[in-house]
């Protein structure tokens, strides 16, 4: 399927690479965004790439919409044939599953949920064919995830599970969004996981929390640069289940400024991944474990 091009008012051009999510579409949107950033086109204010589309904010005082459209169509065709290889990093994110804070919040908004008689974890486990919550949690953290978009509020990552489609966890969002979600909640909606960067409204099912800050407006955490936001599209995340005791220990390290995140640089080749994703993932995670 070819890309679809459409204007959003007189300052935005949206390019939808495909209407469904796939690693291929993500790589195309990322390549197109990089090519556009390197292009000599004038009047471009910002490019937001993610999942299966990219959005260009432009200034029509400097580039006519029709001219921009024809240039972007050319770049989009080049992106279609880009080699899907990126230099990126694997990051280990500790998660306290079944934590008391998301549990309490979930109970507070139970009437907005599909099934008020069970927890978010119980609901997601049974919907995805797992006999127990423990098996579901195990599936959630045993394979890596790909950061396919960053944004929403203050650097929240969207994460796409790096397993074949039939094994991907899928859940609907809450019937009506909650007005509250604990900071650092690990959420899930559709096929995407997310990490809530700050406390606030949200509609994703809640599975746990991480003690690791991912948004840093006061510049106090060494793993986050001056952009305030930790994640970038293309990052690979490995969740690791931790106990409440370890959650407290890491939180204390974060508070004392001595926390360091386990991260390794890797090259990711989509073609090799598609050939045999279980083996490819195992090699990635072995590198992380050996670091």
């Amino acid at each position: 399927m070819g890309s679809r091009f459409t204007f959003g008012g007189d300052e935005h051009l949206l390019v939808e690479c495909a209407d469904e999510m796939s690693m291929r579409s993500f790589f195309k949107s990322l390549s197109a965004a990089q090519l556009i950033k390197k292009s000599p086109l004038v009047g471009l204010d910002e490019i937001n790439a993610g999942n299966a589309s990219y959005l260009i904010k432009f200034n029509p005082d400097f580039i006519k919409p029709a001219e921009l459209l024809s240039e972007i169509k050319k770049i989009d065709r080049i992106a279609e044939n880009s080699v899907p290889v990126i230099e990126t990093r694997v990051v280990e994110i500790p998660v306290f599953y079944k934590d008391p804070w998301t549990h309490e919040t979930g109970m507070r908004f139970r009437e907005r949920h599909q099934d008020p008689t069970v927890t978010d974890l119980e609901y997601a486990a049974s919907l995805n064919g797992y006999a127990t919550v423990e098996e579901f949690i195990n599936a959630h953290h045993s394979s890596p995830w790909f950061v396919s978009m960053v944004g929403f509020v203050a650097g929240c990552p969207w994460l796409y599970q790096m397993v074949e489609r039939q094994y991907q966890i899928e859940v609907p969002k809450y019937l009506r969004p909650r007005t509250d979600t604990p900071r650092h909640t690990i959420g899930h909606g559709g096929c995407f996981a997310c990490i809530y960067a700050v406390q606030g409204a949200g509609g994703y099912q809640m599975f746990g929390v991480t003690p690791v800050p991912i948004f840093d407006p006061l510049a106090t955490h060494s793993h986050i640069d001056e952009s305030m936001v930790f994640f970038r599209p293309g990052d690979i995340v490995k969740f690791r289940a931790i106990s409440s005791h370890e959650y407290d220990a890491i939180s204390a390290d974060v508070r004392d400024g001595i926390f360091s995140l386990k991260t390794i640089p890797v090259e990711f080749d989509l073609r090799e991944f598609e050939e045999n994703s279980p083996n490819y993932n195992r090699a990635l995670l072995d590198k992380l474990d050996g670091s």
């Binding site: 209407d19 999510m21 999942n51 978009m149």
Partner: peptide
């Protein structure tokens, strides 16, 4: 795939 079941859902994308 990935959009969600409500007819107003899309695969999450950037907002203008």
């Amino acid at each position: 795939f990935g959009a969600g079941s409500d007819p107003s859902n899309i695969v999450d994308s950037s907002y203008a």
